[in-house]
């Protein structure tokens, strides 16, 4: 039997396997190397970068919930200049594909970030986090208004020669509408899903646990929501999907691929098991072998076929 072909290509990105790590859970690639060699990963998505340095939110930034984790880190990052000067030289040398994640509070922020990050920077792609509030428009989120989302993606697309991945927020009524909007904006791929907005109250102290009151929920608790959104977007939009949201085991990863994800990304799952990516990859491979599938790409969207 021939070995399963794990490599995958989409949106001009070539990965040795479909396993990526999520932005904000894997630093700039150096933190987990003693647990999971980067050579084993298809790629990593770097911590989100904004034009200016940000100290982020006060602590507590984390609150654990049933099978989930609320976080309100607040985009703490070194800023674009420091990212380019201190981090990019190291990132170029990483033995895996590196996807930068960019965040802004205005259209101009995104334009500035996209202009600075091109193919010659050594990055594989740009993931655009459109979940931040649009400060200029009264704090409305780019990620919840289709028109704004389309504009941001189009602006980024016009500035960079890197493949552009739109990371969508699940905090919307119509995820398909958002996916169509970023497709119109020219997105090359879609990351689904970002965290779900939530909160947790300490009943003894009678106040919110997070200093920021609200946080983004991740972890196995949100997986069914993510799978549903991947399923819907796969049916409606002809763009490759990077599926994420609570993937912790190989079974979770296979579920996302069957729903329509071309690649899958591990986030909070790394905190639970820093070797999860290795175990997931092995599990996907065996799952394909057992079913006589020649390539992991054969799994994508398989559950949509009527039997």
């Amino acid at each position: 039997m021939n070995p399963v072909n794990l490599s995958t290509q989409f949106a001009g990105i070539t990965l040795r396997n479909p396993l990526i790590t999520c932005s904000g859970t894997y630093g700039f690639g150096e933190e987990y190397t003693s647990y999971c060699p980067l050579e084993a990963l298809g790629g990593i998505t770097l911590k989100g970068v904004t034009p200016l340095p940000r100290l982020g939110n006060p602590v507590p930034r984390l609150a654990e919930t049933p099978a989930g984790l609320l976080n309100a880190v607040g985009l703490e990052n070194p800023g674009l200049d420091e990212f380019i000067q201190s981090y990019l030289p190291k990132i170029r040398k990483l033995p895996t594909a590196a996807i930068a994640n960019i965040s802004g509070f205005s259209l101009e922020d995104y334009v500035q970030l996209a202009r600075a990050l091109q193919k010659d920077s050594g990055l594989a792609a740009l993931e655009v986090n459109i979940s931040c509030p649009n400060v200029k428009h009264g704090g409305m989120h780019f990620g919840t208004d289709p028109q704004s989302a389309q504009e941001v993606i189009a602006a980024v697309k016009a500035e960079t020669d890197l493949p552009v991945i739109a990371k969508l927020s699940p905090n919307v009524t119509d995820i398909v509408g958002m996916a169509r909007a970023v497709q119109l904006g020219g997105a090359d791929a879609i990351s689904l899903i970002n965290t779900l907005l939530g909160m947790h109250i300490d009943i003894y102290q009678q106040r919110p646990v997070l200093a920021n009151t609200f946080g983004g929920l991740s972890g196995p608790a949100i997986r069914p929501v993510a799978v549903r959104m991947v399923w819907q977007v796969f049916q409606a939009v002809d763009l490759p999907i990077i599926g994420m949201g609570g993937i912790t085991t190989w079974q979770d990863a296979v579920e996302f691929m069957l729903a329509g994800a071309t690649a899958i990304s591990i986030g909070t799952g790394n905190f639970v098991n820093p070797q999860a990516p290795l175990e997931i990859l092995q599990g996907i491979k065996e799952y394909c072998e057992e079913r006589g599938l020649a390539s992991v790409r054969d799994l994508v969207g398989l559950a949509h076929h009527v039997r």
Partner: peptide, 14 residues
């Protein structure tokens, strides 16, 4: 401090 990843990746415990 409350920790997430425990290895410096998530910035939960600054």
């Amino acid at each position: 401090e409350r920790m997430g990843c425990a290895v410096g990746a998530c910035l939960g415990c600054v």
